[in-house]
Amino acid sequence: MAALLKSTRDIALLTIGFWRGFRGDELASLTIENTHAERYIGIKFYLGSTKGDRQNIGREYKTPSLSKLCPVEAYLNWIEAAGLTRGGVFRGIDRWGNISDRPLAAHSLIPLLRGTLDRCGLPSEIYSAHSIRRGFATWAASSGWDIKTLMDYVGWSDMKSALRYVEPAQQFGGLIRKLEG
């Protein structure tokens, strides 16, 4: 039971983290009360404060339902399997399958991510919680997103900050060379 719960949670954490380009602290801050998911439609998250929210006014983040690796389905599967109705979305699970009442701490996401990658046979030591965000930014750039769309979607206000997350080979048609030159 514990292994199934952990797998379901980890799939939700990775798919939501990737498709939203969330940082670890944003994933750790998600609450059920501020998340609205509709199967086959999409998911909305409200975060009252984030690193990029200098005025502390909060922001809503939306992600559509997808046909593969869907964050909406992953979220609903996790919430249903865990029987959660309020509080933090992502929580610790002990070896007996007991789910913590408290949300995961942002610093605990790195060992969680590395453990998941280890179980998949991937080289985990080179990854951190920011790797999820970086992966999304690189995927978006290689999929034809323009820098403005990516910045708006993820919540970056500074282009140089955004470009630090995109692998150099995928950076928007040499835009980084223009900025640095």
Rank of each mutant, 00 (worst) to 15 (best):
42 G>H: 10
100 S>M: 04
64 P>I: 09
154 V>W: 00
111 P>F: 05
138 T>E: 00
144 G>Q: 09
134 R>D: 04
78 W>I: 01
83 G>Y: 00
64 P>A: 13
118 D>T: 13
83 G>P: 01
88 G>W: 02
151 M>G: 09
138 T>S: 14
108 S>G: 03
118 D>M: 08
114 R>L: 06
70 C>V: 07
124 S>R: 15
41 I>N: 11
153 Y>Q: 02
133 R>G: 05
38 E>F: 04
96 W>D: 14
135 G>L: 04
154 V>C: 04
76 L>H: 01
105 A>N: 10
97 G>Q: 07
156 W>L: 07
54 R>Y: 13
132 I>T: 12
96 W>G: 05
65 S>E: 03
142 S>H: 03
145 W>G: 02
87 G>I: 05
106 A>W: 02
119 R>L: 11
101 D>T: 08
85 T>I: 01
68 K>V: 11
160 K>P: 00
160 K>I: 06
144 G>N: 08
151 M>R: 08
135 G>R: 05
89 V>C: 00
124 S>P: 03
97 G>C: 01
115 G>F: 03
120 C>F: 11
118 D>N: 14
116 T>H: 12
142 S>R: 15
143 S>R: 12
87 G>P: 00
61 Y>N: 06
164 R>N: 11
148 K>I: 14
149 T>V: 07
67 S>F: 03
87 G>L: 02
91 R>Q: 02
88 G>R: 10
140 A>P: 12
60 E>A: 10
87 G>A: 02
132 I>M: 07
130 H>R: 14
41 I>M: 05
152 D>T: 11
68 K>E: 15
160 K>V: 09
120 C>W: 13
42 G>L: 09
108 S>N: 05
68 K>M: 07
110 I>Y: 00
124 S>K: 12
155 G>R: 11
89 V>W: 04
44 K>M: 08
70 C>Y: 02
141 A>V: 09
103 P>R: 13
156 W>C: 03
85 T>C: 01
79 I>A: 00
90 F>Q: 01
64 P>W: 01
64 P>T: 09
137 A>G: 07
86 R>N: 06
98 N>H: 13
